[in-house]
Design a protein around this nucleic acid. Structure first.
Length: 412
DNA sequence: GAACCGCCTAGAGCCACAAATATGC
DNA sequence: AGGCATATTTGTGGCTCTAGGCGGT
């Protein structure tokens, strides 16, 4: 079981960073990803406890293990008994989340102390919990936390109570509780913490699969980063002794998390709400630069407030520079075939029709969407924009050039 | 079904240099 | 501890090249 931190080679790895393709312990995760703004955007999630090499997408509450997609399929896809296991999606996060925020993302994470101000916060004054970390519709009935059930298939007779993006839930999401945001900025902050599928209330009006949303101005303040990871590190052995990572996965009351999905469901699809695939959230959004192509794949979500669940797609878009966005695997999972929790056959026709329609529209929009690169230094861009080139390469001032952005002329 | 070919796409790398950052005094 | 000078690193856009995917033969 060689699941040792790729960085320090000492501690047990608990977190998987897709951007770095590395398995890290919490301490190294903190160290590595607080290094700079780019690394802070890396989307991380828990490590699969079975293969210890892939990011976990779901947690089986029966077996109390976090599983990657493959292990989940292998463990639950074939066995009829195992396939009935209730599984919850596991969220990704980015930035330097506080204890409370990590607890929000992963309810199973211990109750970290919350005092003081993290170094990361002090340095950055910003961080981001991946908006799709709350992509899941929270289980309001259980105040389920950072996870959402994935195999509780809603039925016609049974309104989905899980996944629910219930708008009856109080207007504060877990992350919002932690963040010290001016009132005026709350609306700006919400989308970041809202299910991508959810977008913000206003963002759900468009019937497009999803709309771009701007995360740039969301500077979130976090607390207790030091305490969180310091404690995690100090207690790592204890955790192992007490059941290892499993001990982290106990249920925790995360009331308020539901609100992450408020307004999340667009009137997309409009079928009988049979789509049951709820994708875990994984994007990293604050910087909005982590949307990779797979990340923009459809994400489905339910709204319990709807008489019939609406199908909605969501994703992150916007001024993302594709570079940083790493696929969390969640979205793509949807495209890899029907998940174990797919709807009953009798509903497939209606569902597939609306779904294919929605997917078609989504793809259309995706084609037209621009993933603009985010420019960090406008002054440098301004210089680059006027710099003369030879075959695209910058040339020394005064040298012959074949392209002048200003004059579109050639000197040779 | 395997092998080969052409076409297409995505991504990496290159370039100069001002700005940003780090280091030393 | 703060200020200054110097050194090092970063980031910027257009073009080219290459690897890989895909479809056809």
């Amino acid at each position: 079981m060689g699941y040792i931190c790729d960085f320090c080679g000492d501690q047990r790895s608990m977190v998987y960073c897709r951007s770095d393709a590395a398995c890290l312990c919490l301490s190294c995760d903190r160290n590595v990803h607080s290094a700079n703004a780019l690394s802070r955007r890396h989307s991380r999630t828990l490590l699969c406890e079975r293969c210890n090499s892939q990011p976990a997408l779901v947690r089986c509450s029966e077996e109390r293990v976090s599983l990657c997609q493959n292990c989940d399929w292998m463990g639950h896809g074939n066995s009829t008994s195992a396939s009935s296991h209730k599984r919850q999606t596991i969220n990704c996060y980015s930035g330097c989340p506080s204890a409370a925020e990590l607890s929000s993302i992963w309810s199973f994470v211990l109750d970290f102390p919350s005092v003081g101000e993290s170094a990361c916060e002090q340095e950055m004054g910003m961080m981001s919990i991946t908006e799709n970390s709350t992509e899941n519709a929270w289980d309001s009935s259980e105040n389920a936390s950072g996870s959402a059930r994935v195999n509780d298939v809603p039925s016609m007779d049974n309104k989905p109570s899980l996944w629910a993006c219930s708008s009856s839930v109080p207007e504060h999401n877990s992350a919002a509780q932690v963040l010290d945001q001016p009132v005026g900025s709350a609306s700006v902050t919400l989308p970041k913490l809202c299910c991508p599928g959810t977008k913000g209330p206003g963002l759900c009006e468009d019937d497009d699969l999803y709309e771009d949303f701007n995360m740039d101005e969301m500077d979130l303040n976090l607390e207790n980063y030091e305490e969180l990871f310091g404690m995690a590190l100090n207690n790592s052995e204890e955790l192992l002794e007490n059941g290892g990572i499993d001990s982290l996965f106990g249920t925790k009351d995360m009331s308020g998390a539901d609100s992450n999905c408020q307004g999340a469901v667009a009137a997309e699809g409009s079928s009988v709400g049979l789509v049951n695939a709820m994708q875990p959230a994984c994007s990293n959004a604050a910087s909005a630069d982590s949307v990779m192509s797979t990340k923009t794949e459809p994400i489905l979500c339910f709204n319990t407030k709807q008489a019939h669940s609406n199908l909605s797609f969501s994703g992150l878009t916007g001024e993302s520079s594709a570079g940083d966005y790493q696929d969390c695997g969640a979205s793509s999972m949807l495209l890899m075939g029907e998940p174990p929790w797919c709807p009953p056959p009798c509903q497939e026709n209606l569902q597939s029709a609306s779904r294919s329609d929605a997917v078609m529209r989504y793809k259309e929009k995706k084609k037209t969407r621009k993933f603009e690169k985010r420019v960090r230094y406008a002054s440098r861009k301004a210089r680059a924009d006027v710099r003369k080139r030879v075959k695209g390469r910058f040339v020394k001032a005064g040298d012959a050039y074949d392209y002048d952005p200003l004059n579109q002329t050639r000197s040779c």
